[in-house]
């Protein structure tokens, strides 16, 4: 019996995975280097830059700023996104598909443009939140909520509505039927969606560009500002923490929902 995957295809795929993953591995090694400057391969491994990161006012405060912002974003995105996903799954409203596309659209529209639009809007409307954490919060909610809608939508697609209808026909109120039947069935989808919302906000750069202020910047902006001028190994050490956070989140998501099913075709 011949192999399912032809050898040339396998070789090309391995090269592709190297392209995708090698830069990430490089950051980890760069953050663990012994040398004063970033060289590759590293001269030796040490925790000196990790310690330097943990003592650096700039990166550590940016890390915690991002963490706080991502938590704030996660809470609102999860609530708004879950409610909207429920509506999209249950309504027979004719413009449902268009509404869904509208909610998902920020993900693929230029973040710099949306960030600029929000920045100008915050100034002209006199809301007084341009270049504050509140303005960033709003921008991040726009970009994180689509991921909650996608993830909760996927778990609703596999949930059998007739279960909830059965509870209703046995006399349960809509709230009670939701709490006792639907919610437990989609709870893991909601948790996975909220992790996505967190991590999308944590890594968000484009929309933050116009909205962040000097001295209270999210981590990607702080790293970008220093990377424009020189490579700092403690930035790579900050990167190691971010990489760990992302890997942990994806692994946790995988325990909550079946990633393979999540990524499969989903209609409506």
């Amino acid at each position: 019996m011949e192999r399912k995957i032809p050898l040339p295809m396998l070789v090309l795929a391995i090269l592709g995975f190297c392209y995708l993953l090698f830069p990430i591995l490089v950051v980890v090694l760069a953050g663990l280097t012994t040398g004063e400057f970033l060289t590759f391969p590293p001269k030796g491994l040490s925790l000196r830059w990790v310690i330097s990161f943990l003592n650096s006012e700039k990166y550590l405060s940016a890390f915690f700023f991002s963490f706080k912002l991502a938590l704030m974003t996660m809470v609102v995105s999860t609530i708004l996104g879950t409610a909207a996903a429920l509506f999209l799954a249950r309504s027979r409203f004719i413009g449902r598909a268009a509404l869904r596309a509208f909610f998902l659209s920020p993900v693929v529209l230029p973040g710099v443009v949306v960030g600029f639009a929000l920045y100008a809007f915050f100034i002209t409307s006199g809301l007084g939140i341009s270049r504050t954490i509140w303005g960033l919060w709003i921008g991040h909610i726009l970009y994180s909520t689509p991921y909650v809608i996608g993830t909760v939508g996927a778990s609703l697609a596999t949930f059998d509505v007739s279960l909830e209808e059965a509870a209703r026909s046995l006399g349960a109120s809509p709230m009670r039927a939701f709490r006792k039947i639907t919610f437990p069935n989609i709870a893991q989808g909601i948790q996975a969606g909220s992790i996505f919302a967190f991590i999308v906000s944590f890594g968000q750069f484009e929309v933050s560009l116009f909205l962040s202020a000097p001295n209270s910047e999210p981590l990607p902006i702080a790293m970008y500002n220093s990377l424009r001028y020189k490579f700092e190994p403690d930035a790579a050490a900050a990167g190691i923490f971010a990489i760990t956070l992302v890997i942990a989140s994806v692994l946790l998501t995988n325990r909550l929902v079946n990633i393979r099913r999540l990524l499969e075709r989903q209609d409506g």
Binding site: L20, L21, F22, P23, I24, L25, V26, V27, A30, L38, F40, F196, I199, V200, F202, G203, F205, L219, P220, M223, Y224, L227, F231, A235, A236, G239, A242, I243, V246, I247, S249, V250, T253, I259, L263
Partner: peptide, 17 residues
């Protein structure tokens, strides 16, 4: 999925090295 979710600035740091 993990590489997609990782902050682009970090990935570019690696690319630049």
């Amino acid at each position: 999925l993990a590489s997609m979710q990782l902050d682009m600035v970090i990935r570019l740091y690696g690319m630049m090295v």
